[in-house]
Design a protein around this nucleic acid. Structure first.
Lengths: 219, 219
DNA sequence: ATATATTTTTAGATATGCCTAAATATACTA
DNA sequence: TAGTATATTTAGGCATATCTAAAAATATAT
């Protein structure tokens, strides 16, 4: 099945939205995710429906099919492998790789990806802690808990980040909250859900709810 | 200056045709090179003319401008660096890399290319012996003589290949005419321009004019 | 349950990049 | 140099992917 650039991006967006809550994905939600207009989404959904990567009935939202899920996972696999390459081999920082990987993920060559995977030593996680699907779309996600849900006194290791925008990642660099860092909750403020945490038993800081929701930990 | 995928491909084709003979490039020549129709070329030439990467007056052929030449060289730089990456790092054979590099050459990120160049150790030549332009479009081509022009008894080292199609490269692999191999002309047949050669003082074979024109040597 | 608000779709454009068929300009040749 | 062949351009379409504005369907709230 051959998908265009644009089709791959829509599919990926629908996959992500499916996982982030309801199975039913809305036209507006996709438009938001992709910074396009709802009218454009409607057009594309009809095309994706014909290709049987989603099931779509107008006004009824859209569901990704198994075929679509596997297609999306292949694009995600490529994206994450390229991110590993950029960080591990080309010495990019983790906040610089997303945009470039958005381009690289559309390169069509199964052999290239197999060789790249090998060259990188078959990594299982990308620089943001997200799991890399294998050739069959299989992956194992480690159990992840947002920092925001930790109880007072609770602790865990940073295993992934939800928001991968440069600004957020740069902030994490600044406070030293790298992947693998240990975070312990010292205090929680009920009124705004901010918390005081200590990173690697060294640095004590306050983080807002916005931040604590986007840091994922293993227990 | 931002060029589209298609614009970059046209520019590259025009650059190659400019170098391979006349400065004036023909509409049909470009159509041939890109496997498109002359009518499509005419459309594109008008666009490229507006962007000032070529000078074009209808029925008068087209010339690449300095701005266009530099643009083309950047695409060529990316193409050749990716080819080095594919062969040196991902263990592709030299006949497998062209198509993939055709895709990779359009990735937009100056920083990526700078880092890739560094990672590869600033290579000066690609896997087919072609020089890699630097960031300013500068490169030094070694003097190249087609095998077909060598006199009887003459010899040289394979420094590049003109035809980079998989079939030709596989043929060269088969006869052992890798980059760096020594070739000596043992006999020349005037009637069909075929020749008998010896490769690395070991293997004697006959090659047609078609082949000898596409093997480039240093003297 | 009816009115209002929101979401989604349709209709009609636009831009890119390609095509075929026909017209026109240039080149070649007798 | 006239006539033919070749090269090039124009005209009109098509597909993809986007948009705005308006219409239609669905959701919500009193």
């Amino acid at each position: 099945m051959i998908l265009s650039f644009a089709e791959e991006n829509y599919l990926k967006a629908i996959y992500h939205l499916s996982n982030a809550g309801a199975v039913e994905v809305s036209t507006n939600g996709i438009a938001d995710e992709l910074n396009t207009k709802p009218a454009s989404v409607t057009d594309m959904l009809r095309k994706l429906n014909v290709k049987e990567v989603v099931t779509y009935r107008k006004y009824q939202g859209v569901n990704i099919t198994e075929k679509g899920r596997l297609g999306a996972l292949q694009v995600i696999r490529k994206h994450r492998l390229w991110e590993v390459f950029l960080v591990e081999k080309l010495k990019f920082n983790w906040d610089e790789v997303h945009e470039i990987a958005e381009q690289l993920e559309h390169i069509k060559s199964p052999l290239l990806i197999r060789r790249l995977d090998e060259f990188l030593g078959n990594p299982k996680y990308d620089p943001h802690g997200d799991p890399i699907p294998d050739e069959h779309g299989e992956f194992k996600a480690k159990p992840q808990v947002p920092l925001s849900e930790l109880p007072l006194g609770g602790s865990g290791l940073v295993i992934a980040v939800k928001d991968t925008s440069p600004l957020f990642l740069q902030y994490l660099d600044k406070i030293g909250a790298y992947l693998g860092a240990k975070i312990k909750v010292l205090d929680k403020a009920a009124f705004d859900d901010s918390m005081e945490i200590i990173i690697d038993d060294k640095k004590t800081i306050f983080v807002s709810r916005e931040v604590s929701q986007n840091i994922l930990l293993t227990e």
